[in-house]
Nucleic acid binder design. Sequence first.
DNA 1: TCGTGTGAAGTGATTCACAGCG
DNA 2: CGCTGTGAATCACTTCACACGA
Lengths: 191, 191
Amino acid sequence: MLRDGKETTSSSELGRLLGFTDAQVRKDLAHFGHFGHPGIGYRCDELAVAIRKILGTDRQWRVALVGVGNLGRALLGYRGFVQHGFRILAAFDADSTLVGSTIGDVTVHDLGQLDEVLAQQRIELALIAVPAERAQEMTDRVIAAGVEGIVNFAPVTLTVPQGVSKVGVDLARELEQVTFALANRLSDEQA
Amino acid sequence: MLRDGKETTSSSELGRLLGFTDAQVRKDLAHFGHFGHPGIGYRCDELAVAIRKILGTDRQWRVALVGVGNLGRALLGYRGFVQHGFRILAAFDADSTLVGSTIGDVTVHDLGQLDEVLAQQRIELALIAVPAERAQEMTDRVIAAGVEGIVNFAPVTLTVPQGVSKVGVDLARELEQVTFALANRLSDEQA
DNA sequence: TCGTGTGAAGTGATTCACAGCG
DNA sequence: CGCTGTGAATCACTTCACACGA
């Protein structure tokens, strides 16, 4: 909407676009504050700022990538991260033939330097893209080095201490969501 | 559990492992049928079979990849798909220098051959890994060619007709989930 | 005795509907 | 007059608690 120069929107328009009711949109937004203008709706620019504040993306975040395989490289090349304020500042891999190379503008470090580089770069978030067997170990190490948020791409459930935030992305599980819907022919549901 | 040779489990054990209550586990499983044995619990092998049936992964699915960029290549190399019965049988890209090459054992076809190859290979599911601008167009085309399920990696909301199942994976949104938790210091929630 | 499956109770989320502001 | 923000009503989900089978 901002790109299109749209000034304002409404809960009903947002709802239609997102697949919710207008009341749902208003309740959800009102939960975080008073962003709307009665009789007018929501100003697009104000709303964008407010949502960024809520999501914590009103600033830049310092990110590291652990595991520079196929998926890791894809993550390094993903432009969406930069657009949302996520800066990948360091990468790590066990493969010594990769160590020292730069992909995009990120240098691949040896795992032995992990603690040192994470501290030096003041890394806050880590993307775990290593094989399932190594995922918990890597997670423990980055958390010990001060990382507070984890996105885990390995198909295992990680254990993290209180205060550390964690999200798991299991690509096969996403496909299972589709096959579940097809196997049971659900006509509703969308994401 | 199967790998460890475990014979049976219980709703409370599953709940502890997954982060739910025992009652929740029982209700959810009972929703789909009677899989447990009173006094015993759930037999691991029986439960695995039952869950695969529910998820629709008790058979192989024929999958195509549209877009062989960094992310596409990562998806091609992801072993978890094969393990869950998802076979990527064809890939497509607009880049003519890629067309004709094989990555893993999948051939990259020209987009012009999309309809033909999808029909010939009887493709059921498609992974959309093209830039946001092209995502809806590619989706329309694969659906026209008979695809019934879509996993979309482009950061746009796709429109699909009734009967087609769709899941969206937005990598930046996963990170935002982490920053949201950190910005608001939620102590609960895990995925 | 252990542990499932399940009505009943309790809790939380969504929708309704309208007062009030621009 | 349009649209938000919000109590009240509705609806859905989770937890409780127990009958019953192994």
